[in-house]
Amino acid sequence: MNIFRLIGDMSHLLAIILLLLKMWKTRSCAGISGKSQILFALVFASRYLDLFTSFVSVYNSVMKIFFISTSLLTVYLMYFKFRATYDSNHDTFRVEFLVIPVGGLAFLVNHEFSPLEILWTFSIYLESVAILPQLFMMSKTGEAETITSHYLFALGSYRALYILNWVYRYYFEGFFDLIAVVAGCVQTILYCDFFYLYITKVLKGKRITLPA
């Protein structure tokens, strides 16, 4: 554990809590892509199956259980409890165009051709693009609530901090995982446009609005 990973994990945790708080306080999931949230639930469910096969640390297990359960809770809140507020008309990204190619790639490019390993690879690839339905939705509506922007900033920062963690681990532990690093870089690049808007607008007290 190094400082980058710790802050990265905390940022990820903060993102999830922010999203749940936003939905709970406003009793609404307006502006949130249910498709991205389903993809995140799928990411966690396929990656953390190793909860049953290997124990790493209490921290590791607690975080994994937290991520799986909160992602399922988020999906439940969006599609059941607050369904009336879900903006499905704007959430029209075709997720099969992500899941099918990513599934194929996980079969072809992985560290080991075994079920758990392929599922882990699938989750890493899927996570890197899972935010696309959310970004697509924002570009369609042309705006984002400030709390949604904070959520996305925390969520995007987490993988950027993991890149610093991988640089650190490469130099000080000789550890390097090409699949995670490439996918993590792709994931972070997808957020760059949003990061720019966040820094130039939200941090100056304005909402994110995009030209039509």
Partner: peptide, 10 residues
């Protein structure tokens, strides 16, 4: 193997 080490990442 290296991917044992990887298991501690989230």
């Amino acid at each position: 193997k290296d991917w044992i080490k990887r298991k501690d990442e989230l």
